[in-house]
Write a protein that binds this DNA or RNA. Structure first.
Length: 870
RNA sequence: GGACCCAUAGCUCAGUUGGCUAGAGCGUACGAUUCACAUUCGUAAGGUCGCAGGUUCGAGCCCUGCUGGGUCCACCA
C-alpha cells in the first residue's frame, strides 16, 4: 500500500512538476516551427488541425505573482490541460514582461537611494543597468508559475525584449511608417512631472477632488478658472457666440492681468454660458479643450510650465516657481490688485499618474502618434462580423463602442527601459531636400549617416502596449511566409480591466499585421476581491498572497478554491474557506483511491484496466450513468468557459455520488475492473483543475501507466439504463430511513431498530446494501403482518421495528408530514385544475404533474393509515 | 452626460432557449465513530429570489419603471 492516510501536497508537488517538465509532457505534439521532414518542400504542419493554443499574459519578469495571476493560471491551465486530455496538441506559451514603466519606477527609486539620478547616464547605460537589475530579480515569477501547476511550454518562454519581439515590433513600425499611420505631432499629452514621461490616455487615472474656481477680472470681463497659474499662457478669452452678455465684446481685446499683454475676445462654443461667468480663458499649451479652441482659431501656444513642473516664459517674479507656489503668488497678487472677484469651492476630476499619484500636467510635446482610425475601423468590421466570441458576451459591444471613439495613440515614452523607437532626426540643417525623420533599426547608435546626411536618434522608447499588442503574433512565431496552425489563438484569457488597453490593441495589431483576428475567443476574468467583496490593496492590508495558500493547502486546493463560484467578467470575493474546501476534495480523492487500490489488490487485478468490465448490480450501472452525465456536463461547461460549474459537478459526482453511494456499495460487491475504470475517469476529469493530486494518485496506482497529463479523456461508460434508474429506489429508501431514524426520539436509533419490508424485490435483492447504508442491525422480510413505524414512501412498504411508545412519540412529526405533503398536493392539484395549463403546457409536463399527484396521494394515504394505527 | 454590470440562505456565489418542491460551499444546530477518509459520516434548520407593475397556463429568468451597490468612458473654466 503506497497511500498514506491523508494527502500531503507538499510532499509531492515540486517533484511531480519536475517529472512532468523533464518528460516534456507540456510540449505541443505538433511542431511549433515549420518542418519538412518528408522533404516535399511543404510545411508538414499544413494539415495539422488538432491544435490548441493559448498565451499567458506576461507577468512582470522581476516581480512576484499576485492573486490575479493565480486566477489567470488556474483558468488558463485548466483549459490547456483539458484540451490536452481531449487529444489536442496544446501549446500554452509562457511569457515575461519587461513591464517598462513599472520596472523603471522601481529601478529609479533604487537609483535615487544610492544618491544618483537618471540624468547622469545616457539611455544605453541606463538600459543595461536596468537589464542587470531585472536579470538579478528574475526567476521568482517563473518558479511561482510552476508551483501553480502551469503546464506551459517553457522552452518557448517569450520575454517582451527578446530579439524576435523587437524585430517584429520594428517591422510593424516600419510598415506603419510607410503606410502613413505614424506621425510626429506636437500635441498635448498626459505628462507626469515626477517621472518625466508622457502617458497614453488609457493610463491616466481620474479622481474626483475638491478644488477652487476663481473669478478673475480681465478688464471688464470676468473669467472663471481652477488654474490661475496658467494665466501667463493665456492667448484669448472665449465666450459663447449665443451669449447675450458678451455679444458686443467679441473681437475686442482685454488686458491680461499681471502682464503687459492684450489678448482677444473670441467666440467659441466651448464657453458654456451657464458655467461660472460664462467667459473662459484660453491656454492652448496646458489644457485639452483650450488646445482645440486654439486649433480652431489659429492661436499661439505659450508653454509656461516646464517638463520638471516649474514655471517658464513668465515674468521674472514667477519664474522657476512650482505650479503650486505660482498659484499662491498669482492669487495673492490678483487680490492685491483687486482683480480677484470670486472664489467657489467645487469638485472636479483631476488626472493623476497611476503609479505615483502625481497630478498630471497636460504638456505640449513632440511625440509619435499612431493614426488609429483605419486600424479601429478594420477591427470594428471584424468584431461586428462576430469573428471573435466574447465571454462575457456583452464585452463585444463595449469594445466596439470604445473603438468607435478611439483617439490617436501616443506611443512615445520618455523612459530608457523599453524598446527604442527606431527613428532618427536630421541633424544637418543644410540638407533641406532630405526628410526630417528617417526610419532605421540601428537604435544602438546615437547618430547615423545616410546619403551623407547626419541623423540623431530619437531618445524615446515605445509604450509597452505597442509591443504587447503583438503578443499573439510573437508568441506563436507567426510569419507572413509560413502557415501556422497555432495562429489565431484558440482563446485569449486575461483580466477584464485591460480589455481596452490590451485586447483592443491586440485585435487592431493582429489584423494589421496578419490580416486575421489574433484569437477566436476572448475570456475575461474579473478582479479577485477579498472575502468581504473589497478590492485588495496594500493600504487596506487585505492582500492575499497566492503562494501562501499554495504552501498551506497545496496548489490544487488553491486552483479549485479560486475557480469555484467565479464567472466571466465579474469581480468576485475570495476567501480561504473555498481553498480549504478544495484541499478537502483532494484528500477525499486520495482516500477514494486508497480504498479502490485496496480492493484491486485484494482481487489481484493489477493489470491495466480494460473497458470490458461487467456491471453486476444497480449501483454499478448507476455510477456509470452518473459519470457519463458528469463528463457531459464538464465538456459542456468547458466549451462555454463555465469553470465554476465544471468544478461543481465534479465535486458532487466524486464526493456525493462516487464515494458516498457507489464506494459504499462496493464494500459488498468489489468489482475491481469497474472500480479501476471509473476511478480513472474521475481522476482524468478532475485533472485539469487539480493536476497534482490526480497525477500523484495516478503514479501510485498499481495498474496505471504513463502520466495522467497525457492520458486520454475518458470514453463514455457502458451500462444498463433501466438498472441504473432502479438504483434511485435504493437511494430514496435509504434516505427516508435515515431521516426517520434521526427524527425519532432518542439517539443512536439506527443501531436499535430493524428495518422490515413487505413484498419488495428491490429491497429483497439489496438487503445487505440497505443494512450497511442505514446502519440498522438487520433488514428483514415481513411476510404480510406489518408492525412498527411505516416509512413515508409512496412505492415501497417498509417499516422500522420500533415499539409502540416510540411510534406514539412520533405522532406529531407524522401529522406535520401529512400536512406538508398535503400542501404540495394542493399546489399540484391547483395546477391541474387550470384548464389553460392542461391545454397549453407541454404534454410531458402535464403527465408529470399527474404522476406526482398520484404519488402524493398514495403517500398521504399510507401516512394516514399509520396515524390511524396509533 | 454616455454605456455596462450586479442585487437569490448568516457569508460567498450557481441557477444555460421561461417548466416540477430555487441549489452549492462555508457557517449554524443535532447525531454518529475500530473496518478508505474527523481534511470523515448522517440529519436538519435557514429564501415572500432588491421594490412596483406588465407579458404568460407558468417568471429568479422576458419587458417597463424605481431603489441601492459597483465599473468603465467622456466632460468638468
Amino acid at each position: 500500500m503506497k497511500f498514506a492516510s491523508s494527502y500531503e501536497p507538499n510532499q509531492y508537488e515540486s517533484e511531480i512538476y519536475a517529472a512532468w517538465e523533464m518528460a516534456g509532457v507540456f510540449n505541443p505534439t505538433v511542431p511549433t516551427v515549420p518542418t519538412d521532414d518528408d522533404g516535399d518542400g511543404e510545411d508538414d504542419r499544413k494539415h495539422a488541425k488538432n491544435t490548441y493554443s493559448i498565451v499567458m499574459p506576461p507577468p512582470n519578469a522581476n516581480g512576484n505573482l499576485h492573486i490575479g495571476h493565480g486566477l489567470t493560471v488556474a483558468t488558463e491551465d485548466s483549459l490547456t490541460r483539458y484540451y490536452r486530455l481531449k487529444g489536442k496538441s496544446s501549446w500554452y506559451i509562457p511569457g515575461a514582461d519587461h513591464a517598462g514603466f513599472e520596472t523603471w519606477v522601481v529601478y529609479e527609486k533604487n537609483l535615487e537611494k544610492t544618491g544618483h539620478t537618471r540624468f547622469e547616464y545616457d539611455r544605453n547605460e541606463l538600459y543595461s543597468k536596468v537589464w542587470d537589475f531585472v536579470a538579478e530579480q528574475r526567476g521568482n515569477m517563473e518558479l511561482q508559475l510552476r508551483a501553480l501547476g502551469a503546464s506551459c511550454s517553457w522552452d518557448d518562454l517569450t520575454f517582451t525584449l527578446d530579439e524576435n519581439v523587437t524585430d517584429r515590433i520594428y517591422t510593424t513600425f516600419e510598415k506603419m511608417w510607410n503606410d502613413g499611420l505614424i506621425y510626429r505631432g506636437e500635441k498635448l499629452v498626459n505628462y507626469c512631472p515626477k517621472h518625466r514621461t508622457a502617458f497614453a490616455d488609457i493610463e491616466v487615472e481620474h479622481k474626483d477632488e475638491p478644488g477652487t474656481l476663481w473669478d478673475i477680472a480681465y478688464d471688464d470681463i470676468i473669467v472663471s478658472t481652477t488654474r490661475p497659474e496658467t494665466l501667463f499662457g493665456d492667448v484669448a478669452v472665449a465666450v459663447n457666440p449665443e451669449d447675450p452678455k458678451y455679444k458686443d465684446k467679441i473681437g475686442k481685446t482685454v488686458h491680461l492681468p499681471l502682464t503687459d499683454r492684450e489678448i482677444p475676445i473670441i467666440a467659441d462654443e466651448h464657453a458654456d454660458p451657464e458655467y461660472g461667468t460664462g467667459a473662459v480663458k484660453i491656454t492652448p499649451a496646458h489644457d485639452y479643450d483650450d488646445y482645440e479652441v486654439g486649433e480652431r482659431h489659429n492661436l499661439d501656444r505659450i508653454q509656461v510650465i516646464s517638463e520638471s513642473g516649474k514655471m517658464i516664459n513668465v515674468p521674472e517674479k514667477y519664474y522657476d516657481l512650482t505650479t503650486e507656489e505660482c498659484r499662491k503668488q498669482v492669487i495673492k497678487d490678483l487680490k492685491e490688485q483687486g482683480l480677484l472677484k470670486g472664489e467657489h469651492k467645487i469638485t472636479h476630476s483631476v488626472a493623476h499618474c497611476y503609479k505615483c499619484g502625481t497630478v498630471l500636467e497636460p504638456m505640449l510635446k513632440d511625440q509619435w502618434f499612431i493614426d488609429v482610425e483605419k486600424l479601429a475601423k478594420v477591427a470594428i468590421q471584424h468584431l461586428e462580423a462576430g469573428e471573435i466570441k466574447f465571454y462575457p458576451e456583452n464585452k463585444q459591444k463595449v469594445l466596439i463602442n470604445y473603438l468607435k471613439g478611439l483617439k490617436d495613440w501616443n506611443i512615445s515614452r520618455q523612459i530608457p527601459w523599453g524598446i527604442a523607437i527606431p527613428m532618427f532626426k536630421k541633424a544637418d540643417e543644410d540638407a533641406t531636400d532630405e526628410p526630417d525623420w528617417i526610419y532605421d533599426r540601428r537604435t544602438n547608435l546615437k547618430e547615423i549617416e545616410k546619403a551623407g546626411v547626419r541623423y540623431v536618434r530619437d531618445e524615446d522608447t515605445f509604450d509597452t502596449w505597442f509591443s504587447s499588442s503583438h503578443w499573439p503574433i510573437v508568441c506563436t512565431n507567426w510569419t507572413k511566409e509560413n502557415y501556422n496552425p497555432y495562429y489565431p489563438l484558440n482563446v485569449m484569457e486575461t483580466g477584464a480591466d485591460i480589455l481596452f488597453a490590451w485586447v483592443a490593441r491586440m485585435i487592431m495589431m493582429g489584423l494589421y499585421v496578419t490580416g486575421e483576428v489574433p484569437f477566436k475567443e476572448v475570456y475575461l476574468h474579473g478582479l479577485v476581491l477579498d472575502e468581504h467583496g473589497q478590492k485588495m490593496s496594500k493600504s487596506k492590508g487585505n492582500v492575499i498572497n497566492p503562494m501562501d495558500l499554495v504552501t498551506k493547502y497545496g496548489s490544487d486546493a488553491f486552483r479549485l478554491g479560486i475557480l469555484r463560484g467565479r464567472s466571466a467578467g465579474m469581480n468576485q470575493a475570495f476567501s480561504e474557506n473555498s481553498v480549504i474546501a478544495g484541499r478537502n476534495l483532494c484528500n477525499k480523492l486520495w482516500n477514494i483511491s486508497r480504498f479502490v487500490q485496496g480492493i484491486v489488490d485484494e482481487c489481484n487485478e493489477n493489470e491495466p484496466s480494460t473497458t470490458t468490465y461487467q456491471t453486476d448490480n444497480m449501483g454499478e450501472d448507476w455510477i456509470c450513468q452518473e459519470i457519463n452525465d458528469c463528463l457531459n456536463q464538464v465538456e459542456k461547461s468547458m466549451q462555454e468557459y463555465r469553470f465554476s460549474e465544471a468544478v461543481e459537478v465534479l465535486y458532487q459526482t466524486i464526493w456525493d455520488k462516487y464515494a458516498d453511494w457507489f464506494l459504499e456499495s462496493q464494500k459488498i460487491y468489489k468489482n475491481a475492473e469497474l472500480l479501476k475504470t471509473t476511478l480513472e475517469a474521475i481522476l482524468i476529469a478532475l485533472h485539469p483543475f487539480a493536476p497534482f493530486v490526480t497525477e500523484v494518485i495516478w503514479q501510485n496506482l498499481s495498474w496505471t501507466e504513463g502520466f495522467i497529463v497525457t492520458a486520454k479523456w475518458p470514453a463514455k461508460l457502458k451500462y444498463d439504463p433501466i438498472s441504473a434508474a432502479n438504483f434511485q429506489n435504493i437511494r430514496i429508501i435509504v434516505s427516508e430511513a435515515r431521516t426517520t431514524l434521526q427524527a425519532l426520539p432518542g439517539t443512536n436509533n439506527a443501531k436499535k431498530y430493524n428495518l422490515m419490508y413487505n413484498n419488495d424485490s428491490i429491497v429483497a435483492d439489496n438487503q445487505l446494501l440497505i443494512k450497511n447504508l442505514t446502519k440498522v442491525p438487520a433488514v428483514i422480510a415481513l411476510n404480510g403482518s406489518p408492525k412498527g413505524l411505516k416509512l413515508a414512501l409512496a412505492n415501497h412498504e417498509l417499516y422500522l421495528d420500533v415499539p409502540e411508545s416510540v411510534v406514539n412519540a412520533y405522532k406529531d412529526t407524522l401529522t406535520e408530514k401529512i400536512l406538508s405533503v398535503g400542501r404540495e398536493l394542493d399546489a399540484l392539484n391547483a395546477r391541474m385544475e387550470n384548464p389553460n395549463y392542461v391545454e397549453k403546457a407541454p404534454a410531458h409536463l402535464v403527465k408529470e404533474t399527474q404522476d406526482q399527484i398520484n404519488e402524493k396521494q398514495a403517500l398521504i394515504s399510507h401516512l394516514k393509515q399509520q396515524l390511524e394505527v396509533i
